[in-house]
């Protein structure tokens, strides 16, 4: 009965749903974004703190999320934060919905849009950070 939902979700999804990583708020974040799913009323909010490596390259120093949504929404938000954390900001581009879904050992077709949301959210948080940088103005 532990595998009660394995028809719908993979073990990985359930793990991230039950024990989400990086859930919460960052005070004074460098970048923040809220995305919503107009189709079913879900909300995700991402916070990022940006660090600089020795060469001055920016990377995700800290990432947090808050999510109101289904099991897949919570799992994809959690997964996306673990995927980008520590990585250069420019690599956020590589974290597509497929990458997130694959990292979770797959998502049901009807739930793919939840990973779209997670992917969009992280990018938007990065954009929000860039928009605040003087060089970008």
């Amino acid at each position: 009965m532990d595998e009660l939902f394995n028809n719908l979700y993979s073990k990985k999804v359930m793990e991230h749903f039950r024990n989400p990583k990086n859930m919460g708020v960052i005070r004074n974040p460098d970048g923040v974004a809220t995305v919503g799913n107009p189709r079913c009323g879900d909300l995700m909010k991402f916070y990022i703190k940006v660090g600089k490596n020795k060469q001055g390259g920016e990377y995700f120093k800290e990432v947090k999320f808050q999510t109101l949504g289904c099991g897949a929404a919570i799992a994809t938000s959690s997964m996306v934060t673990t995927l980008v954390k520590g990585k250069p900001l420019i690599e956020a581009e590589n974290v597509t919905k497929q990458v997130i879904a694959e990292a979770l050992d797959g998502l049901p077709a009807v739930k793919m849009h939840c990973s779209v949301l997670a992917d969009e959210g992280i990018r938007k948080a990065v954009k929000n950070y860039y928009s605040k940088q003087p060089s970008q103005k």
């Binding site: 009965m1 939902f5 359930m14 079913c40 009323g41 879900d42 949504g69 289904c70 099991g71």
Partner: peptide
């Protein structure tokens, strides 16, 4: 959200249902 509620309830062995869009 309803689906998350149902999943967490079922983790506690309580079986219920939801009409959430999700």
């Amino acid at each position: 959200e309803g689906e998350s509620l149902i999943l967490l309830l079922s983790d506690k062995k309580v079986i219920a249902s939801s009409g959430s869009a999700c």
